[in-house]
Design a protein around this nucleic acid. Structure first.
Length: 378
RNA sequence: GUGGAUAUAGCGUAGUUGGUUAACGCGCCAGAUUGUGGUUCUGGAGAUCGAGGGUUCGAGUCCCUCUAUCCACC
C-alpha cells in the first residue's frame, strides 16, 4: 500500500507498506547486489545506519549462489538475515552493463556468465521466476536499457519490446504468486520506463505502462552518460505521466544533488552504487562536499570525517587513522568509509522527509545544494 | 688476498652495432567511476644513468682509475 502523506510542488512525502514492513519515502535503497553490501557491512550495521530497504540483483544471485539454492534455504530474507524490504533488480541492466557478453532477442537475452562463462538465458519469465525464488519484496520488470546515445529507431523498437516484456512479466508474476510453494505470494512488481533521452518516446511509454496495474513505476536508463540537464529534463517530462498514486523509482541515481533534484520532480525511490563504491575508494560525502581521504592533506587530520556526524566511523575515528587504514588496505578502512557514506545518504533522505513534513523542502534543497558545493573547510 | 659479476627515479628492472626530450612495473601525488566484477581507467611528480678522467661531432652504452655491493676460491 502506498499513501501520500504530504506534497510540496511535485515532491512527494509518502509511506509504502509491504509484507516486510514500512518504507518511509523519499528513500535511498542501500545496494547489496550479491546479497551483501560490499565493504564488510553486516545486518546489524544496516540497522545502525538507518537502512530501510536493501537492493539485490537477480542476475548476479542467479549466477552465484543460484536462486534455487536460496529458495531451498527459505528465501533471500532468511538467507541474509534481513527482515525489512528488499527490492531485486531484474537483470535488465546487466544487458546493458555487460554488453558484449549478450545477445538480445524477442524471447529474451542470452548472456555469458561473467563468473564461469557458461551460457545463461533470461527472458521476462525467467527473471520473474528467479525473483520469485529469491522472494524479494519488490521485483523489477525485465527490461532493456538502451544507451543514451542509441539511434532513435533502435530506441523505439527496444522500448516497444520492453513493453511486451512487461506484459509477460506481469502475467508470469500473477501466476507465480498464486503457486502453492511460492515463498512470497505478495511479491510486488514495478514496471520500468525507457526511451533514452527522447522525450516523445519516454512520454508515450510512460502513458502506455501507466495503463497497466503495476505496484510501482521506475524511470530507468538515466545516468548512463547523458548530462545532468538532460536527465532532469527527462524527469520533468516523464514523471507527470506516471501514476501519482504509485511509488516512483529513479533507477541507479545518484549523487546527493541528483537525489534532491529527483525528489523535487516527484521521485520517491533511489538507489546508487556511489556511497558504497566511492566509500571503498576513500571518497566520502559530507554536507560541505566530497573529500578524498587518500589525499595527503588528511595525513595528520585528527578530525572525524564529518563534524557532528553520528555514524559509527565518525563517532570513533579520525580522518588520519582511516586514511592510514585505506592506504594499508586494511578492511576496516573500507568498512568505515562505506558505513559513513551510507549513513550520510540515509540521513540525507531522513532530512528530506523532515523538510517535506515541515513544508520547507525547497529551502532545504537549496541550502543543501549551496552547502555541498561550497567545499568550505574540507 | 685472487678471480668473476653488477652499479640507471624510493624499490625492482629495460635501454639495439654509440645517435634528439633515458622507458616500464610497483610505490608516491592527483582525477574519473550513477539498476556494483573490492575492479579498472586517466593524468602527474620524481634520475646530474655509482664517482672521476679519457676516446668521439655525439657516451647510460667504448676505454682507464677509484668506490660500493654480490658470488666463487684460498
Amino acid at each position: 500500500m502506498y499513501e501520500i502523506l504530504k506534497t510540496e510542488g511535485n515532491a512527494k512525502r509518502a509511506r509504502f507498506t509491504t509484507v516486510h514492513g514500512v518504507v518511509e519515502t523519499p528513500v535511498f535503497m542501500n545496494v547489496g547486489t550479491v546479497a551483501a553490501i560490499k565493504g564488510a557491512v553486516a545486518t546489524k550495521d544496516l540497522y545502525e545506519i538507518g537502512t530501510q530497504i536493501e537492493l539485490s540483483n537477480t542476475y548476479h544471485l542467479h549466477v552465484r549462489p543460484g536462486d534455487k539454492l536460496i529458495k531451498e534455504l527459505g528465501g533471500l530474507h532468511k538467507f541474509m538475515n534481513w527482515e525489512k524490504p528488499i527490492l531485486t533488480d531484474s537483470g535488465g541492466f546487466q544487458v546493458f552493463s555487460l554488453a558484449g557478453l549478450r545477445k538480445i532477442r524477442e524471447e529474451g537475452v542470452t548472456f555469458h556468465s561473467h563468473v564461469d562463462g557458461r551460457i545463461i538465458f533470461m527472458g521476462p519469465e525467467e527473471s520473474m521466476q528467479i525473483q520469485s525464488n529469491l522472494a524479494s519484496t519488490v521485483a523489477m520488470a525485465f527490461d532493456e536499457c538502451p544507451s543514451s546515445v542509441a539511434e532513435r529507431d533502435y530506441v523505439k523498437q527496444s522500448v516497444e519490446r520492453t513493453t511486451r516484456w512487461l506484459i509477460r512479466c506481469q502475467n508470469e508474476m500473477k501466476r507465480l504468486n498464486s503457486l502453492e510453494d511460492t515463498i512470497n505470494k505478495n511479491q510486488l512488481l514495478f514496471g520500468i520506463n525507457q526511451g533514452a533521452i527522447l522525450e516523445d518516446i519516454r512520454i508515450d511509454h510512460a502513458k502506455r505502462i501507466s495503463e497497466m496495474e503495476l505496484d510501482g513505476y521506475a524511470v530507468g536508463g538515466l545516468a548512463v552518460g547523458e548530462t545532468h540537464e538532460e536527465m532532469y529534463n527527462i524527469l520533468d517530462v516523464t514523471v507527470p505521466h506516471l501514476p501519482k498514486d504509485k511509488p516512483t523509482y529513479l533507477m541507479g541515481v545518484g549523487t546527493p544533488a541528483n537525489i534532491l533534484e529527483g525528489v523535487d520532480r516527484g521521485v520517491d525511490f533511489f538507489d546508487c552504487v556511489y556511497p558504497s563504491r566511492n566509500g571503498r575508494h576513500g571518497h566520502l560525502y559530507t554536507k560541505l562536499g566530497k573529500i578524498n581521504l587518500f589525499n595527503q592533506k588528511y595525513e595528520k587530520d585528527m578530525r572525524p570525517i564529518e563534524e557532528g556526524c553520528e555514524c559509527p566511523a565518525c563517532k570513533m575515528y579520525s580522518r588520519a587513522y582511516i586514511r592510514h587504514l585505506l592506504k594499508a588496505k586494511e578492511m576496516l578502512g573500507m568498512r568505515l568509509c562505506v558505513l559513513h557514506n551510507l549513513y550520510f545518504y540515509n540521513k540525507l533522505m531522513s532530512d528530506i522527509r523532515d523538510a517535506l513534513d515541515n513544508g520547507n523542502f525547497k529551502s532545504f534543497k537549496n541550502s543543501m545544494l549551496d552547502s555541498m558545493s561550497s567545499g568550505e573547510d574540507l
